[in-house]
Simulated assay, not measured.
Amino acid sequence: MAYDDESAKQLFMEAKRVYEDRGMLKWMSGFFLSDHTAAMKKDKTERAKVNEQKTQMYTHEITQVLEHARLKSRPVAIQLEQLDVEGHYLDDITGMIRGYDELGIYIDDQKVDYDEIRHVELYDWKKWSKLK
C-alpha cells in the first residue's frame, strides 16, 4: 500500500494520539532538568561575583598609566565610575588602547571617556596553557 504525504501525516498523527511513550518523556525531562540545573549554577556564580572597589586615581596618575601602556603596547584594565543595579562595580574593561581623542580612549572596540575612569592599571594576559 502506497501513502502520499497527507495520508502518511494522518497515519502518524493517529499513531501519536493512541501511543504515548512515557520512557521517552521521562528521558527528555531529565535531559532538560540537567541543562536547567547547570544554567542555574552558572547564574548563581555570576551573581555571587562582586567586583571590589579599587582606589580612586588622580587624573595625572591615570594619564601616566595610559601613556605608558600606549607607548609600550601593553593592555590595560580600567574600572569605570559606574555601578550596576545592585550597587556593585562593573567588570573591568580590558584590552589594548587602539586610539584616543580629547574626550576619551578606545579600548579594542569600546570608547571610554576620561571622566568615567576610576582606576587604570597595566594588565597581564593569562595564557590558557597556564590556567588550572
Rank of each mutant, 00 (worst) to 15 (best):
A15W: 14
Y3H: 15
E46S: 02
Y58R: 15
R118H: 01
T45I: 05
L80V: 07
L103R: 12
G104Y: 07
G95Y: 02
D108Q: 11
K111P: 00
L103M: 10
Y106L: 14
F31Y: 13
D84K: 03
T59Y: 13
Y58E: 15
S129V: 04
R47N: 08
R98S: 06
G95E: 01
Q110R: 12
A77K: 02
E14I: 10
A8I: 08
A38I: 13
D84Q: 03
G30M: 07
T59L: 14
T55L: 14
Q56H: 14
R17S: 12
Q79N: 01
I117P: 00
I117C: 03
Q64E: 15
Q53T: 13
D35A: 08
K49A: 08
W27T: 15
I107T: 03
M40Q: 09
K16H: 08
I107N: 01
Y123P: 03
R74C: 04
N51S: 09
R74W: 05
M28F: 10
L83K: 10
M13Y: 08
H68F: 07
L71E: 05
Y123E: 02
M1R: 12
A2T: 15
V50C: 13
L103Y: 12
M57T: 06
I97K: 01
D113M: 12
E20M: 08
R17N: 13
Y100M: 07
S73V: 01
K132T: 10
N51V: 14
Y106D: 11
M13V: 09
L33G: 01
W125Y: 05
A15N: 11
D43T: 13
M28I: 15
Q110K: 12
G87W: 06
E121T: 09
S7M: 10
E6L: 14
M1H: 15
E61M: 10
R22T: 12
W125V: 05
M57L: 13
K54D: 02
Q64N: 10
L83Y: 05
E46M: 09
W125T: 00
D92L: 10
D113F: 13
F12D: 06
H119M: 04
G104M: 05
K49L: 12
G87K: 04
H88F: 06
G30W: 09
D113Q: 09
D43S: 06
K132Q: 00
R70K: 08
W128E: 06
L80M: 07
E67M: 08
Y123N: 03
D101Q: 04
H88Q: 12
K130S: 07
E121C: 08
D91F: 06
Y106Q: 11
K54I: 05
A77F: 00
I117Y: 03
D109E: 12
G95L: 04
M24L: 14
I62K: 09
M13T: 05
Q10V: 05
L103C: 04
D101L: 04
T37Y: 07
M28L: 14
K132M: 02
E46P: 00
L11K: 11
E6D: 14
A39R: 06
S129A: 01
M24G: 13
Q82Y: 01
Q10R: 13
K44A: 07
G95Q: 01
D101I: 04
D5W: 12
A48N: 11
I93S: 02
